[in-house]
Simulated assay, not measured.
Amino acid sequence: MPASHSPDRATAKALRLSGVTLDHRGGDGRPFRVLDIPDLTVPSGAHIGLRGPSGSGKTSLLHVIAGLIVPSTGTVSWGETELSALPAASRDRWRLETLGFVFQDFHLIPELDILANITLPASFSSWRVVRSEQERAAAIAARMGLVDLRRRTGVLSRGEQQRVAIARAVCRRPALILADEPTASLDAAHADEVGALLVDAANEAGATLICATHDAALLARLERRLDIETTSPLRELVA
């Protein structure tokens, strides 16, 4: 059985959130509001920075955009597709074809080596990762300063794991890249370098990039910056 090739690169589309709220229940059983976004439109290919204190809902917002959480009310749309109305299996397929996600907790598989972790999304759509995917993964790893691709990620430092997670998110040139504190585990010099690589990868792919970050240097690289707070809607940050 021949190895299947990766699907054509997805095209970035406009992202829109309309009337989105997200409610959780506290330890006392009472509901509390995590997100309240009357309207947010992100043009295709835009680079957005989300800033806000811990607990303000940045991670929840990224998870809502990714379809990992369905909002309590409102709609999330990618182009003409209303993601929030899709069944779980269809959202899974959309993420595989469209999304690269840098999770705050990385979600690497510690028993697998660096190369296998970076190419893991490709393995979901093919029984074998093709050579072109491996070569691209190796090239991105080198740009991230990851030299020994056969090292297991379980023995890497947090900073190295962070770079593996970013390399995995951008390897297939997704149309949408979501990054949750992508430079948090890096020192200032490496954070600046990796932040630049993340933005460059988004530019090369023509991807929409949304970063939740406290990193002022990374925020400065992004063309639009939004403040998120639990008590008020998103507001534009003045550069």
Rank of each mutant, 00 (worst) to 15 (best):
L99R: 12
L234F: 07
E135R: 10
D92C: 05
D113L: 05
P31F: 01
S90R: 11
R136N: 11
I109Y: 05
D92G: 01
V164C: 03
R235T: 15
R131P: 11
A184S: 11
P174A: 09
R173N: 08
L96R: 06
A239R: 12
R93Q: 10
H47E: 14
E236I: 14
T21R: 09
P110W: 00
M144N: 02
G159A: 05
E80W: 06
L108V: 09
P7C: 13
T153I: 08
F32P: 11
L61Y: 10
A205R: 14
L112H: 01
L83K: 10
P2H: 06
Q104R: 09
R225T: 12
D92Q: 04
T59G: 07
V130I: 14
A85S: 15
E229R: 14
G145A: 01
A239W: 05
A189T: 07
S72D: 08
E204T: 13
S4L: 15
L146W: 00
E111F: 05
I37Y: 10
S18N: 13
E80P: 01
E80S: 14
V20G: 09
G45R: 00
A217N: 05
V76G: 07
T98W: 11
A217H: 05
G57Y: 09
S54W: 12
V34K: 03
F32S: 00
L86M: 15
L96H: 03
A216G: 05
I210S: 01
E133V: 15
A207H: 07
E204D: 14
L68S: 00
I69E: 12
L112P: 02
L146D: 02
V194W: 00
E193P: 05
L99C: 11
R173M: 11
P121D: 13
G100L: 04
L61Q: 11
L40P: 03
A141G: 06
D215S: 13
A175F: 04
T183D: 04
D180Y: 12
T59F: 11
D187A: 14
L178I: 12
S54M: 10
L112N: 04
N117Y: 01
V130T: 15
T81F: 06
D113I: 05
S6T: 13
T75P: 12
L40F: 01
L178S: 05
P38S: 04
A66N: 05
Q134S: 14
P31Y: 02
T98D: 06
G195Y: 00
L222P: 10
V130R: 15
R128E: 14
L186M: 09
D8R: 12
G100T: 08
L197E: 14
L234A: 09
R173G: 09
R163M: 02
I48D: 06
H47Y: 00
R33V: 09
M1S: 02
G145H: 00
R95Q: 10
N203Q: 14
V194S: 02
R91F: 12
R95E: 01
R16T: 02
E229N: 14
R30S: 01
G57Q: 08
